[in-house]
């Protein structure tokens, strides 16, 4: 059963990707991904559509095979020890599909059976946490409720490693909050989580570190604190009267500015108080302060843009 126990395997590493490349026939895929995630860590995979998040996650589960490179989960090889790995992993697919004719209870019971039997009380915890009606056939469930079935299926065994591909897609904010608190609880219990998203704020809520992926390449890995330091707010102001633009530009933390018509666009890092204080002295027609979108973040810090 135990295949060539690798003495070099670091017990504190939950998953390690070693120059993993997967090239699809169409030319898309992921290239030379190298990454270690520590046991007990929550790692966020952040990237726009088609970046390669789903590809990476399916490679880990041996649903697809790398063109080159190696993946190890808890020291086990993703190709040769896949069954042993999957015994310890809970997975939520990005494009979730369920058996339409079965009820959530039937699906969960079936998967629990394939996992060698689970205590239904454990399952019940998640069923209640997500407020899931387990006796309706899946075909009659809304998109959000289907997602809940997938989440419960992934989490019900309290697996050592949670692999969640866009876990909050289709969920209302309240249920998104539940997902986040369950992820935090898993991490508190020393379990490892890898989750993907294309929303920065969502990953920032729960992750310790974030891997930025784009066009199949891992551009950077940063702690959430670092990332949020980078993530300047975008301030857009429209004034009624005349304005001294210079006083705004010279404020601390203003990274860039742009003036068009009567609007002033500023990129502000760090503390927002100085600018809010200054704005209070003016007669404003409109004001918006928002986080940068993922694309804006990529453009700002990695000098890459779409197309």
């Amino acid at each position: 059963m135990e295949t060539a126990t690798d003495t070099t395997v670091d017990q504190s590493v939950a998953i390690s990707l070693d120059h993993v490349t997967k090239i699809y026939r169409g030319g898309g895929g992921v290239y030379e991904l190298s990454l270690d995630i520590a046991v007990g860590e929550v790692f966020g995979f952040l990237g726009p559509n088609g970046a390669g998040k789903t590809t990476t996650i399916r490679l880990i589960l041996d649903l697809i095979r790398p063109s080159s490179g190696r993946i190890r989960v808890f020291g086990l090889d993703s190709r040769t020890d896949s069954v042993a790995i999957r015994r310890r992993v809970g997975y939520l697919p990005g494009e979730l599909a369920l058996y339409e004719r079965l009820s959530a209870r039937q699906i969960l019971t079936h998967f629990a059976h394939l996992r060698g039997g689970l205590d239904w009380k454990k399952v019940e915890h998640y069923v209640e946490a997500f407020d899931l009606d387990v006796d309706r056939p899946v075909r009659s469930l809304s998109r959000g409720n289907r997602q809940k079935v997938g989440l419960v299926a992934a989490m019900m065994g309290d697996p050592e490693f949670l692999l969640l591909d866009e876990p909050t897609s289709g969920l209302d904010p309240l249920v998104q909050r539940t997902v986040q608190s369950e992820v935090r609880r898993a991490a508190r219990e020393g379990r490892t989580v890898l989750l993907s998203s294309h929303v920065l704020s969502e990953v920032g809520e729960v992750a310790d570190r974030v891997g930025l992926i784009r066009e199949g390449r891992l551009i950077d890995i940063e702690s959430v604190a670092q990332l949020q330091g980078h993530a300047a707010h975008l301030v857009e102001v429209r004034f009624r009267g005349p304005t001294d633009v210079q006083t705004f530009i010279s404020l601390p933390g203003v990274l860039s500015h742009r003036v068009d018509d009567r609007s002033l666009h500023l990129e502000v890092a760090g503390d927002l108080n100085p600018i809010v204080a200054l704005l209070a002295r003016y007669d404003l027609e409109d004001l918006s302060i928002r986080e940068p979108t993922l694309e804006e973040l990529f453009m700002r810090f990695y000098g890459v843009s779409d197309g």
Partner: peptide, 11 residues
């Protein structure tokens, strides 16, 4: 696409 969930199990 239900195969993804099926093969997420240790089989």
């Amino acid at each position: 696409r239900t195969i993804d969930l099926l093969l997420a199990n240790p089989v």
